[in-house]
Each structure stands twice: as structure tokens, then as C-alpha cells.
Design a protein around this nucleic acid. Structure first.
Lengths: 139, 139
DNA sequence: TTTTATCCTATTTATTTAATAGGATTTAAC
DNA sequence: GTTAAATCCTATTAAATAAATAGGATAAAA
């Protein structure tokens, strides 16, 4: 249901969430850790930066960091940035039934948007912490 | 955000919703009214029938009708039938962050599923009625 | 038995998503 | 300043999915 860009983008952000205040991490390093294509992840990073979700320091020694606290970054912003179909216009013109269907689907999309706005990266971080506890348990 | 199959499928169902009890309407007729590709709509109709959303009478004089009252047909059933990506498996295996992201996205998809289950065709019909009133107003 | 409609399978075309490639730009470090 | 390390930009290719088309098999009413 979610394109790979969203999956990878979330892994990228989750990795950044482990960074100490004021530090940065490069795409090459993250791609290596996460076993993802450097170039593909690079494009994702640029998109997230343009959306104001991450901050960047260009040049040597640079890299990315989260622009805001986890609970202030919503899944809506991320999906909107990385999944073009969320945006794609729904026609509310034309034939009679077409208008009705268009308005109906717009209202559903709005509800979906509200849902996504209520979910923040904090929740993702919790899933991640849970996962690590599970591993700790076996050691 | 929704594939054309869903748009067309809803227009198809909305058209059927105007039918008198016990009557049927053929795909060719509906495609003509709605200005849609007959063959494409045909495939959509078959899918909706397999999902139990519409009933069919084969042979001459046959056609489709709604299988249940409007308020008992949810958008979830329709989208599940016509949009394959809703189903597509989300990997909750592999790398650490991959698991966390997988479980996180599964939970979001579940919330979305609940949202879609709360929306029925009755609501679509209301949008349609509204639309017609708007037109009546100008006459 | 003919006609009308659904149903099935396959193919083609268009669009979108994913991935790759090469180099331009920026800036810290030396 | 020069170099090295990183982001950024543009273009292209490859793969996957969605949309549309085509032809005929099957079913059943007329």
C-alpha cells in the first residue's frame, strides 16, 4: 500500500532519530547500514529536506539530521512528500455520478489525511524500541 | 489516490442503486450512460460480483443488481476488490529498522481499513442526491 | 435456435515507480 | 588555496503496475 520511497524514507528518519543533538549523518553511511541504494536514498533525503522534515549540512563532514522533535513530525508530511498519489487531483466535475463519486472520495481522502496527521514518528520509534527489547530478551 | 477501477466501480454501483427492486441492468447500458469503456467496466463488474457486492443474471435480459442494501456495502469491500495495493503484503521481517517500519505501517493500514469500513454506499448516494437537488434548484 | 448478455484469457499500451549514472555544487578540513 | 567529502541536480533506463482492447466461450431468456 505504501511505495518503497515511504518505507525507505521512514528507515532513513528512524536512523536519524538515534543521533545525538547537533550531530549529522551522511546518506552513504545510512545506505550502507540499511542496505539501500545510495542514489535512491539520496533522492529521498533531498525530498524530505525540501519538505522541511530534515536539516542538512552540505560539504565534507556534513549530512542530515531531524529538523524537529519526533512528536512534531507526522506521517502525513512524510507520505505527502514521498507518495505522489496522495496529492493527485480527484475530479469533481463532469457527469452527474462522476461529481458525486469525486466529492465522496475527496471526503474519504480528507479523513485519511486526518488519520495520518495523528500518527507521528514517535510511534515509529516506539515500535523500534519494542523490537530491540525483544532482541535483548534473548541475550 | 484511488485507481480508476475504484472510480468507475463506484459509478457502476451508484447507477445500480437507482434500480427498482428485483430489476437488473446490463454493463453495456451502464457503460453507455456513464461514457466508460464497456470491456473495462465488464471486468470491474465481474470482480464486484465475485466479492459478493452485486448479483448477476446471466443471459439475455440479464444484468447486475446490488446484492445488499446500500448501508451494508462498505467502501472497504469495494476498494479491497478493485485496488490490489491495499492487500499487498508489508514485510515485517529483515533488518531491525525494517521490522519496526513494517509493523508501524501495518498498524496504519489497519486504521485505514477501519476508516473505510465505516463508510458505506449510503453516503455516496447522499452526495448524489445533493448533486441532483443542486441541479433542480436551477430549473 | 437465435439473440443477448456475462465471463474468461490473452495481449497491448500507457503510466508510474524504482533504480542507475554522471557530474555540478558546496563546504569543511588540511 | 587545494583537496576531499558530502549534497544536489538532471537525465536516462528498467521494471512493475494500471488501463484499455480484443476475441471468443458460456449461459439463459426470448
Amino acid at each position: 500500500m505504501f511505495p518503497k520511497k515511504v518505507h525507505y524514507g521512514l528507515r532513513f528518519l528512524l536512523t536519524l532519530s538515534g543521533l545525538a543533538e547537533g550531530t549529522h549523518l551522511g546518506v552513504a553511511e545510512i545506505a550502507e547500514r540499511e542496505q539501500l541504494s545510495v542514489k535512491f536514498l539520496e533522492a529521498i533525503a533531498v525530498t524530505l529536506r525540501k519538505e522541511g522534515i530534515v536539516d542538512v549540512r552540505r560539504g565534507a563532514g556534513g549530512g542530515y539530521s531531524l529538523a524537529r522533535p519526533l512528536k512534531e513530525i507526522t506521517l502525513y508530511q512524510i507520505v505527502l512528500a514521498l507518495d505522489e498519489k496522495l496529492d493527485k487531483e480527484i475530479s469533481t466535475e463532469g457527469h452527474n455520478t462522476e461529481k458525486a463519486v469525486g466529492r465522496f472520495l475527496v471526503s474519504v481522502r480528507n479523513d485519511y489525511g486526518r488519520l495520518l496527521r495523528r500518527v507521528t514518528l514517535e510511534k515509529l520509534k516506539n515500535y523500534y524500541a519494542e523490537e530491540n527489547e525483544r532482541i535483548m530478551y534473548y541475550i
